[in-house]
């Protein structure tokens, strides 16, 4: 509590000033900090996304936050409703460390609904802001705040974003600062994933496996350090160009694997299988083994998205009545294998 209550102020002249921030364009002239900042050498990842996320986004943010927390990666985010707060909370739940970057004074909890997270960050993590204490959360503060979020991170992961999302501002900042951007892919029909899918099209990294993400970031970090901490990429400042480059690289890589198929065939398939295996086990829910055999089909028809009983029935191989389906779903709810989101909608836990 001691550390949490005290507000310290650091300027770039002091050693406590985060090293990463020194090198970003328009670095903040000073930071108000509550809590304790982590050791600088550790990996940091910014997890950002929509405030009004879907259940899919919620699930991914939870899993990702928890994974990063477990692996000692600091999760940076804006403490907002939705993806931000969920991933930060999950990281601390998993015993990890998290930093909340605010768009208001560090003595103000915004949004007020995240009080629990705010208090926990003061206790176990850190909260910082470039605005003096007492500054109210003004809309104009937040885009500027985002440059600190990406600036503090080694890489930025976008979990869910609409096509016109504030999250995309953070992505722009990240690219300007030379940070890697990874995106969680979504369905093309899903408006909450429009922004993400657009970024993928533009050449952003695709997050399929958390293990792989970690490996890539570590590799990246080593490479950056070899070049000298925080040095700018050659084409910094032009996000489009950076993404374009990445896209070209990935196509080249694909082609080269194709070419080298005959020689590396055995190895590459093996690797592919491994990746596939790890992906599916990473993201899949609990397996259906604990579910009674007669409920197994309907359990597997459930999704992260809330689905209406009608939709669930349509997914089942055999035709059963909606009434029968409703009874089975309630049974699943009793065993905590399903959640009744609203009277007619169910999703998997």
């Amino acid at each position: 509590m001691e550390t949490g209550n005290k507000i310290s102020f650091v300027t770039p002249l002091e050693a406590e000033y985060p090293e990463k921030l020194r090198h970003i364009p328009d670095a903040p002239g000073g930071l108000y900090i509550r809590g304790k900042l982590p050791v600088e050498t550790g990996l940091t990842v910014a997890v950002i996304g929509a405030r009004d996320c879907s259940d899919y986004g919620r699930y991914v943010a939870e899993e990702l936050g928890s994974f990063l927390g477990r692996n000692g990666v600091t999760v940076i985010s804006g403490m907002a409703r939705g993806i931000d707060g969920i991933s930060q909370w999950a990281a601390m739940e998993a015993g990890g460390f998290s930093i909340g970057v605010l768009g208001c004074g560090v003595d103000i909890c915004y949004p007020a609904g995240n009080r629990a997270l705010f208090d926990r960050l003061l206790e176990e993590g850190a909260v910082l802001s470039e605005y003096p204490p007492g500054t109210p959360p003004r809309a104009m503060n937040f885009p500027a705040r985002n440059r600190i979020v990406s600036g503090l991170a080694d890489a930025v992961v976008v979990v869910e974003a609409r096509s016109k999302s504030g999250t995309l501002i953070t992505v722009d900042m990240a690219l300007e600062q030379g940070r890697e951007v990874f995106v969680v892919p979504g369905r093309v029909t899903d408006r909450l994933s429009d922004g993400c899918n657009r970024l993928i099209k533009q050449g952003a990294g695709i997050l399929l496996s958390m293990e792989e993400l970690l490996e890539e970031i570590e590799e990246l970090k080593v490479r950056t350090e070899e070049r000298g901490i925080g040095s700018m990429p050659e084409k910094a400042g032009s996000s489009q160009a950076h993404m374009e480059k990445r896209r070209r690289q990935s196509t080249e890589k694909g082609q080269s694997t194709e070419k080298g198929q005959s020689t590396e065939k055995g190895q590459s398939t093996e690797k592919g299988q491994n990746a596939k295996k790890s992906q599916s086990s990473e993201w899949s829910r609990e397996d259906a083994s604990g579910v009674a055999p007669e409920l197994r089909e309907i359990y597997q028809a459930l999704d992260f998205y809330p689905c209406s009983v009608e939709q669930i029935v349509a997914r089942l191989p055999g035709r059963i009545s909606q009434r029968q389906a409703a009874l089975q779903l309630i049974q699943l709810c009793m065993e905590n294998k399903a959640i009744q989101v609203s009277p007619g909608y169910f999703k998997s836990p």
Partner: peptide
């Protein structure tokens, strides 16, 4: 309606914030 716009909990269609 489940929310001001009427489409909650269908996240694809609903444009309301959680609050």
């Amino acid at each position: 309606n489940p929310c001001p716009c009427g489409f909650y909990p269908d996240a694809g269609k609903c444009s309301c914030t959680e609050p």
